[in-house]
């Protein structure tokens, strides 16, 4: 961080993010990951903006409400055949699935994160129950960082997609819907430059 303060704009960006104090863009979080080196520290943790989480949770809530409407609609027609227990059974199934889906959506949001440490970047993608992808790249291997805001939500909430071009085997790292994309880009580019400079010496 001392090195950052000497003429790099990343220090200002980090200070701004710390002042905003958002849980989805956390400066110096208490995070540890496997393979972390002795003097390595996590500088920034960024998740997708929670608006995407809220929209999906609203979708699940609507699924539950529609399920109850469906029960109310079919009850007069098949209630006689299936009996009163059918409504109770269907309610249990809808509520149980609703809870599981809500948890799945929340966990997917929670573990879709991007970390910048003093040595590297780490992108964790919780895409489905079957697959979780970990992508890391050394900061000195970062060649280019591109910010692309797309769509109305990005414009309204100041979000963006980040595309990081690296020299490693994983050529491009893509992070979607992150808040403060320009600040993150600034921090990344400055940190990469600092790492490259320290390697040259």
């Amino acid at each position: 961080m001392d090195k950052v303060k000497k003429g790099f704009s990343a220090a200002k960006a980090l200070k701004d993010l710390k002042k905003r104090n958002k849980h989805y863009a956390c400066v110096f979080p208490q995070v540890k990951f496997s393979g972390m080196e002795d003097h390595e520290k996590v500088v920034l943790l960024v998740r997708a903006h929670p608006i995407y989480l809220y929209l999906r949770l609203i979708g699940i809530f609507l699924f539950i409400i529609l399920g109850f409407f469906f029960i109310a609609f079919i009850q007069p027609f098949i209630g006689g055949i299936l009996g009163g227990m059918f409504v109770l059974k269907l309610t249990i199934v809808i509520l149980t699935w609703g809870i599981t889906l809500a948890l799945l959506v929340w966990v997917k949001w929670y573990y879709n994160l991007f970390l910048i440490s003093t040595n590297r970047i780490l992108d964790l993608d919780f895409t489905s129950l079957k697959s979780v992808a970990w992508t890391t790249a050394r900061l000195e291997n970062i060649e280019d960082v591109e910010v692309k805001p797309t769509g109305l939500i990005h414009v309204l909430f100041g979000l963006g997609n980040l595309f990081i071009q690296t020299a490693g085997s994983e050529a491009k790292i893509e992070i979607y819907n992150i808040p403060y994309p320009v600040e993150v880009q600034d921090i990344l580019l400055d940190f990469a430059e600092i790492r490259r400079n320290s390697h040259r010496r």
């Binding site: 979080p29 208490q30 995070v31 540890k32 990951f33 964790l124």
Partner: peptide
Amino acid sequence: DIQRSLTLG
């Protein structure tokens, strides 16, 4: 499985 490699609090 994720928590084995990543500690978030």
